[in-house]
Amino acid sequence: MILEIRNLHAGIEGTEILKGIDLTVKAGEVHAIMGPNGSGKSTLAGVLAGREEYEVTEGEVLFRGENLLEMSPEERAAAGVFLAFQYPVEIPGVNSAYFLRTGLNSIRKSRGEEELDALDFLKLAREKLKLVQMDEAFLKRSVNEGFSGGEKKRHEIFQMAVLDPVLGILDETDSGLDIDALRIVAAGVNSLRRADNAFLVVTHYQRLLNHIIPDVVHVLLDGRIVQSGGKELALQLEAEGYDRIKQAATV
């Protein structure tokens, strides 16, 4: 079992956003979390990655049997959780290679593994850059600075490939992508799918799920999962919109 969320309640500054989430993700699975704006999708992603502005008021989250909520964001990363940001942060003055190598080596160090030197890291990075069709020149550029929307998202997937997480969380990775970039991003994610890891794909629209085929689709509405099903559920949502489910949920 990779992730078990039980009756998770969380909010920000006294306002409850997640109102009792139950979700179980097994190894080898891809789960999609769909929902309209304001349903709590990004909050869920943020709580799992350890965003400190959210307060968990009830429930528990187990990551491979360990209490995830007790861990700091860096401990979660070391344990194998990765969040691909909806809005990747620009860090002028730190180049991408240095940034990611520092992260990777911090993680390796905490696991008692040997750190990679600049040369070994470069080898690894080159290989992973190919997955998202990015040029090596990006390694020398400041993190996300001056990147286009598509480049930022590909850069997120590249980082995920290098850190090789057990659970990859994609927060609205499809937002702002044209169809070509979307395909590249999806292909990158697909190439990382294995029997021993899992992905949580948070998205408003179904189109990303044409390329990353989920095993389970959950519909999040007002902080609760109101419906779960197979990949066809995403298509149904695309055709009918969220309104019908909203009506069904309130009846």
Binding site: A49, G50, R51, E52, E53, S72, P73, E74, R76, A77, A78, F82, L83, F85, P88, V89, I91, P92, G93, V94, F99, L100, T102, G103, L104, S106, I107, S110, S142, Q159, L163
Partner: peptide
């Protein structure tokens, strides 16, 4: 805060993240 969180989510411990970001500020 957002930049600090970004670093930490990549595995960089808080203290190192603060050094990294201030270093970047000075770079």
């Amino acid at each position: 805060e957002e930049a600090l969180f970004y670093c930490r989510s990549r595995g960089i411990p808080l203290e190192s993240a603060r050094v990294l970001l201030t270093q970047a500020f000075a770079a």
